[in-house]
Design a protein around this nucleic acid. Sequence first.
DNA 1: AGTCTAGTGTTAAATTGTAACAGTTGCAAT
DNA 2: ATTGCAACTGTTACAATTTAACACTAGACT
Lengths: 148, 148
Amino acid sequence: MTKNCNHNLCKSSALLAAEKICEQLGARFTQHRRRVFEIVWQSHKAMSAADIMIEMDNKQPPITYRALDFLKSAGLIHHITSLNAYIGCMHAKNPDHVGQLLICTKCNNVAELEPKEAVKELIEQAKQQGFSTQITHIEMLGTCNECE
Amino acid sequence: MTKNCNHNLCKSSALLAAEKICEQLGARFTQHRRRVFEIVWQSHKAMSAADIMIEMDNKQPPITYRALDFLKSAGLIHHITSLNAYIGCMHAKNPDHVGQLLICTKCNNVAELEPKEAVKELIEQAKQQGFSTQITHIEMLGTCNECE
DNA sequence: AGTCTAGTGTTAAATTGTAACAGTTGCAAT
DNA sequence: ATTGCAACTGTTACAATTTAACACTAGACT
């Protein structure tokens, strides 16, 4: 998926999905937002805000951070907290999904799974402790099959 | 656990464990390392590097960051990446444990579970994609039973 | 005693992220 | 078509967070 995708196709279908989602939200998919989205979707590698700014036309940090915040809260990208970096979300259409991010520490590629059962179990175990879960972050660092 | 602990006991047993682990590692549990460890263990609340520095005697950032790095790599504390904060590890004796952190967004208390089966399942699913996991971060944000 | 490694102290700086506020644009309602 | 409002932009300046670098010191082991 991550590796053997026809990435032009992959990216343009993500773009279409993003446009649709913005429309549904009544938000505008403006120049900056589109540009940041395209940069993040350039590859399946995690990109830091700094990486993104290098490619931005307008280098002023607030522009980039605002776009990232928007895309994140619209569910179009993920913030990888353990790297402080961003990656396009593969399941943006699916509103309440919880991604499991598989991050290759060698090539920096990120894949995403939707491990529904296991996550339910985690949430259930938390509940048994009286904890009511709102947001779940699952990030796994390791090596992908190409980098073994 | 997190709430109804006799915290003096809780903290001092953590300290003893830390001393033992450092000895096993052949590393020194120096002044600064001990001090940072104590500050983190003061409570079961997540503390940022800045929070810690406020309580440090020597305020110079490198001192604190170095101690945090050491404690983290010795497995004595966890870095909560989604908050950029730290918390004492409740299972430090157990070398290859994978913590699931339950972070209350109201009171900032952090509890830790060891959800063996569910995590195995996550690792297994990753493996089926050809991904070999080395480090796992599971962080869940929500509200604890006292804050409901 | 000598030497080697781990740890310290210190300065300074890079990197990363935000506040604030005036200006502008798209869109909807009169 | 104007007006008015909310969303979005541009810009400056700053705050917060983290790291580099390097000379120095203490402890541990021949």
